[in-house]
Nucleic acid binder design. Structure first.
Lengths: 133, 133
DNA sequence: GCTACAAACGATATTCAGTATCAATAACCG
DNA sequence: CGGTTATTGATACTGAATATCGTTTGTAGC
């Protein structure tokens, strides 16, 4: 919540409402979902606020193969995502191994690596139990 | 080109035209680019054919952070992409290290890993030379 | 080569996510 | 409290992608 002040933005009611919703979500959510839960807030503001939080690093965007992009709280600053291919739930993980790998890879790549993104497609434990949910 | 027959699709003129264009491109290209080079082919067909080739595994889709998705020939069956953050060019690379990493990671992930996707954001050699192109 | 039938086509309308515009509103600072 | 200015919401718009549908065109069988 302090993010708004830190960046010099105003702590308006719509923004607070959106941030409160996000805090409960944790998991991957779409812009539309937020809009549905806050009918009082205009579409434009939803997207504006999401963009604002993206820039502030509070949430991160995840472009999936199909459908609208999902967002999730970036509870840790650098991390990667797991996406369950069956239920679509999104998780976060962090692995030092990945970062180490990047450094190793830099010799094979024609240019300077400035960032990376890793997505793991999984069948989550919940879905493993229910063959077709 | 044999892809079409292999999957039971018809080898129509528009499809052949599209495939020919793709064969020259190699790099990341958008659906719109293809459309521009083939004004005779309807928009719908461009997208239909792209989807078809995606399913057949001939090309792969790359959802970037902004703008339309890019596609590229999957000249090797499993690979990852480099995206130059300055000029937007897309490259492919393959590294056994990545695959090895996945196996190592599987213990830390709550579920079964069924696939993965890695994108490297780089400043390519060409752009490193020209500070602001 | 000709015919028939289904697959595929192109033009158009439509959906959907996201953005621009702009007058009205509400935070913040004094 | 009042003025300034960021922010809002309604609406219109854009741009990518899809659905519809009458027409065209591969292809298999003759």
């Amino acid at each position: 919540m302090a993010v708004l002040e830190d960046e010099g933005y105003r702590a308006t009611a719509p923004r607070r409402a959106i941030i409160n919703i996000l805090a409960e979500k944790q998991e991957g959510f779409t812009a539309e979902e937020i809009g549905n839960e806050l009918p009082a807030v205009g579409r434009a503001t939803i997207f504006r606020t999401i963009k604002l939080l993206l820039k502030a690093g509070v949430i991160c965007r995840l472009n999936l193969m199909d459908g609208a992009p999902k967002y999730s709280l970036s509870s840790v600053e650098h991390h990667h995502h797991t996406v369950c291919v069956r239920c679509g739930n999104v998780g976060e993980f962090r692995a030092a191994t990945v970062e180490r790998l990047m450094r190793g890879l830099s010799d094979d790549i024609p240019g300077n690596i400035v960032g990376h993104r890793l997505e793991l497609y999984i069948v989550c434990d919940r879905c493993t139990g229910n063959p077709d949910d």
